[in-house]
Write a protein that binds this DNA or RNA. Structure first.
Length: 267
DNA sequence: CAATGATCCTGTCCGC
DNA sequence: TGCGGACAGGATCATT
């Protein structure tokens, strides 16, 4: 499940592969995977990518033709660079074509991923309300304190809410709460500023460690060069039987998601 | 407004 | 060996 470190790793892979290349189009092989804004006037291709950006779990490719591609991988989306590809792969839902015949395949078995083509000045219409970047300077304990006050939902659900902080998913939230020593089901609004400091600190720590490892590969996620990330080797609670101290891990469902935590280390 | 639950979708895994 | 069912989960929409 691509979260911030995986999306960032994919972005850097795209940057390596697509820098200075001329995009000639986006083909769609599954209804609804590619969405083209009605506000697009004239064909935005051929065009180079002027800027590569990530916002939360969204990839933003700004074309020099004043249009942008918004890509969301959701759970099983993968981008794979392919020199001169032939017929679409079995789970290939879309394809970004390049001048010269090469392409980036969008492979997504569960079909939830999207590629949106929209004028660059109209991005906001296709991006939801997103909270601060967890590695940015405005993600602070004070911010979290304010965002969570009087909220009764479990802290785990709050950290998964992209409107509160943009880019975290199930794996990293489990790991962040373990390192912070906080149970995932604690009501978000009742957590002290001191403990929120732990959350902010460990959010940065976990994300930075994962970025350094090229992300986490637990199921489908691969880098654009189809290599695995390595952070799954450093997970302490997610899909584990025991925490690093040997206590047995509990798995409860919160917001319909499995939530791994150590009942001894997390209070 | 806040919180919860259903929904989308298919590959994988488990038990019988 | 094969089958049914549970499960995985990000974001959105509907309901309470």
């Amino acid at each position: 499940m691509p979260e911030l470190p995986e999306v960032q790793t994919v972005l850097e892979g795209l940057q390596n592969v697509l820098k200075d290349r001329i995009l000639t189009g986006v083909e769609c092989y599954y209804p609804g995977t590619v969405i083209e804004s009605a506000a697009i006037s004239g064909c935005p291709f051929p065009a180079r990518i002027g800027e590569f950006q990530r916002r939360g779990k969204y990839l933003l490719l700004h074309l020099e033709s004043a249009s942008s591609l918004i890509i969301h991988l959701r759970m099983t989306g993968k981008l794979v660079y392919e020199p001169n590809p032939e017929e679409p792969h079995k789970h290939e839902r879309a394809r970004i074509t390049l001048q010269g015949g090469d392409a980036v395949r969008f492979i997504d078995p569960r079909t939830f991923g999207k590629i949106i083509l929209t004028p660059s000045n109209n991005l906001a219409q296709y991006l939801p309300d997103l909270g601060p970047e967890p590695l940015g300077t405005d993600f602070t304990p004070q911010y979290l304190h304010k965002a969570l006050q009087r909220r009764s939902m479990p802290i785990k659900n709050a950290l998964l809410d992209q409107r509160i902080v943009a880019g975290l998913g199930n794996i990293y939230v489990c790991e962040i709460l373990y390192r912070s020593g906080i149970r995932p089901d604690l009501p978000a609004g009742k957590i002290s500023l001191t403990r929120l400091k732990q959350i902010v600190r460990h959010t940065r720590e976990v994300l930075n460690e994962s970025l350094a490892a090229g992300g986490t590969s637990v199921s489908d996620y691969r880098r654009i060069d189809d290599k695995s990330g390595e952070f799954q080797n450093f997970l302490r609670v997610y899909q584990k039987d025991n925490c690093p101290l040997g206590h047995s891990i509990s798995n409860i469902r919160l917001g319909g998601r499995s939530s791994f935590y150590c009942p001894v280390c997390q209070k």
